[in-house]
Simulated assay, not measured.
Amino acid sequence: MTPTPTPTPTPTPTPTGNLGCSATYRVVSQWSGGFQGEVRVVAGSSAIRGWTVSWTLGANEAVNWPWSATVTTSGSTVTARDAGYNGALAAGAATTFGFLGTGSASTPTLSCTAS
């Protein structure tokens, strides 16, 4: 009789907690041809070491002169990364960054990723 091989157990991933974040956007002020935007980043139920927020620009909209984040634009996609000093957030803690924009302010949908 041939022995039946015993299946090798599949390792269970180690939970890392809820390394999440959320981001909300608001227009602080607007003027002819421009606006000031602000984004609030909030850590999830666990502390995070850094964050990245991205969104898509509206028509004829551009992001310029950011503060408290490193901001890059590729086509119509904006990516903002923490500035180092404001990346580590305790669970539930928040930070903000802002920028001046040109064009008419839209209401973007933000995506937040924590590390």
Rank of each mutant, 00 (worst) to 15 (best):
G44T: 11
G92C: 02
S111R: 09
G20S: 12
S45R: 13
A90D: 12
T6R: 13
A91T: 02
V63C: 12
L57H: 10
G44L: 14
P66S: 11
G98R: 06
G50I: 05
G17C: 08
F35G: 02
P11C: 12
S54V: 08
P11M: 09
A80G: 04
T73G: 15
R81I: 13
A59R: 15
T10I: 14
T109G: 02
G37C: 12
L110D: 04
S68F: 14
L100P: 00
G87E: 04
T56H: 10
T107Y: 00
A93M: 02
G87M: 03
G103W: 04
L110I: 02
T109K: 05
T14H: 12
S76E: 13
T72V: 09
S46N: 11
V63T: 15
T52W: 09
V41L: 11
W67E: 12
V71E: 06
T2A: 15
T79P: 05
G50L: 10
V53I: 15
T4E: 13
A80P: 03
G20A: 13
A88G: 03
S54G: 09
T107A: 08
A69D: 03
A62C: 14
A105H: 01
E61W: 04
T24R: 15
A105C: 01
P5D: 08
C112S: 03
S32L: 06
A105Y: 00
A94Y: 05
T10M: 10
V53R: 10
Q30F: 02
T2Y: 11
V28N: 12
G44P: 14
G44V: 08
R40I: 05
A91C: 07
V39T: 07
P3F: 09
S29L: 12
T102V: 02
L89E: 00
A47E: 05
D82N: 07
G87H: 02
A59I: 14
G103I: 07
L110G: 00
S74N: 07
S46E: 07
D82A: 00
T12N: 07
W67P: 04
P11W: 08
A88L: 05
T8S: 08
T52E: 15
A88R: 03
T70N: 14
S68W: 06
G84I: 10
G75P: 12
G58S: 12
F99P: 04
G84K: 14
W51Q: 15
T56M: 08
A47P: 14
G84W: 11
T79K: 05
P7E: 14
M1E: 10
